[in-house]
């Protein structure tokens, strides 16, 4: 099992200790904090992680803290713990991207499932992020002309059509196309289309 972290924030130190014990018994590495400030101030190793957060905290509420994390662009899956199942609150939390909303006292398996799911999500997000970084680097390596030709290629146009619309010779287009395939490390047109799609989705997200 690759290294991962679970952060727990709850202002009740007894609850905090019990959650720590439960997660530790399943082999998770756990860091506990009695306030959001402690979490923000502490060091966070660059490993897949998730955050177990009490909704009702002294100082900022858990939901406010969720927004704060969002603003600070700290993308970490959040599992909320709440004293009472408040529907509007849980809806708000889920909309803001929480992965689970557990009512205290919760079933241990529910929390463990949620934590596993959260870490899985985070790991996935991280690898995705890493792949995208590589793809972006490859894209950056292309010449402006090649970047111009790429969308035409992936939209299924023939070399002849591309040559016509860009007023180039068909041979030149062919050369560019080969360059694109090589720089993007795509073995087939289908693969190139997939890569372009991911890059486009990423650009749209930002």
């Amino acid at each position: 099992m690759a290294r991962s972290m679970v952060y727990v924030v709850d202002d009740d130190r007894y609850v905090l200790a019990s959650v720590e014990s439960l997660l530790a018994s399943e082999g998770y590495e756990v860091a506990t904090f009695s306030s959001p400030d402690g979490f923000m101030a502490g060091k966070r190793p660059d490993v897949p992680a998730c955050l177990v957060l009490d909704v009702r905290l002294r100082g900022a509420s858990g939901l406010e803290f969720q927004r704060e994390l969002h603003r600070a662009r700290i993308a970490i899956p959040i599992i909320f713990l709440t004293g009472h199942g408040d529907v509007p609150m849980s809806v708000a939390a889920m909309k803001a991207g929480a992965i689970e909303f557990l009512t205290k006292p919760f079933r241990d398996q529910d929390l463990l499932d949620a934590v596993r799911h959260g870490i899985e999500l985070d790991r996935h997000r991280r690898s995705n992020e890493a792949q995208l970084v590589v793809l972006r680097q490859r894209y950056e390596a292309m010449t402006p002309r090649e970047r111009e030709i790429l969308p035409l290629v992936v939209s299924g146009q023939m070399n002849k059509q591309i040559a016509f619309s860009l007023s180039l010779s068909e041979v030149t287009v062919k050369v560019h196309r080969a360059q694109i395939m090589q720089k993007m490390q795509a073995r087939s047109l289908i693969e190139l289309v997939r890569i372009a799609d991911r890059l486009a989705a990423d650009a749209a997200r930002i």
């Binding site: 609850v15 019990s18 014990s21 439960l22 530790a24 018994s25 004293g83 009472h84 006292p105």
Partner: peptide, 28 residues
């Protein structure tokens, strides 16, 4: 009533979670 429920709920949560954790530590 919400306040009382919350006050009682905290130690209950902690007890249940600790009991679960204890079982898991023993069953390892």
């Amino acid at each position: 009533s919400a306040s009382i429920a919350h006050e009682i709920n905290q130690p209950l949560t902690s007890m249940i979670t600790n009991a679960n954790a204890g079982l898991r530590w023993l069953l390892k």
